[in-house]
Design a protein around this nucleic acid. Structure first.
Lengths: 108, 108
DNA sequence: TGTATATACCTTGTATTGTTAGGTATAAGA
DNA sequence: TCTTATACCTAACAATACAAGGTATATACA
């Protein structure tokens, strides 16, 4: 029961987490997140592409059209320094929120 | 740097976490969350009250007008069984998402 | 050859919701 | 008296997940 709000909260972070390890393109990122989450997070394209476009507009990633081995066109995304910083601070923030949630629920 | 999306993702859970320990009213819930988060989460009223009204409409809490010791009117909220269940599954989901995020960032 | 599936990109409309900015009212303290 | 804290509320705006649509090419299979 991953709420859409939780999805929203981590979408940027998960995409950047993928790109941190190397360039990626939309379809590949979608499958990678699905794989890494063991099917828990299976984003629609209407979810994925706007995220990528937003990250690009915010200068966290850079997009370049490229060609795959099979000749198919692909838009590759590369993480930028700002993206790395955003990811690092975002993960810290996630931990901070987690701590609050856990702290308020551990003592019965 | 808690994003608004993260706030959105835990707002229900934090309010229910407070009410799990006993009845509460708006202003008290707001301060309690601010206190428990050490100031990290300081919600505006325009944020808090819609959350409470939503939880009520979704039958996760019950609201009853009451009177404080000083004679001031207060709207007290009581968690319902559905609220407890939502909280439990919500926390599980939060852990699951956390695991994915951590898993994608631990191996360098 | 035809066709279904996987790959690969995109946008638009709808509903939800955080934020900002307002409003009302009472109790306590200076 | 006046300010601050307490205590509730709503409306307008902007951001965004999701559903549903669109286009196009490569591959596998009948």
């Amino acid at each position: 029961m991953i709420t859409k709000e939780m999805t929203s909260a981590v979408s940027n972070l998960l995409v950047l987490s993928v790109l941190k390890k190397g360039p990626g393109y939309g379809y590949m990122i979608q499958r990678e997140i699905k794989h890494q989450s063991e099917g828990l997070m299976d984003w629609t394209e209407g979810m994925l592409y706007p995220v990528l476009h937003r990250l690009e507009k915010q200068d966290m990633v850079e997009a370049r059209w490229g060609v795959a081995e099979n000749g198919r066109k692909r838009k590759y995304y590369y993480i930028k320094e700002e993206g790395r910083e955003y990811l690092a601070t975002g993960i810290d923030a996630w931990y901070a929120v987690s701590d609050v949630l856990i702290g308020m629920n551990e003592d019965e």
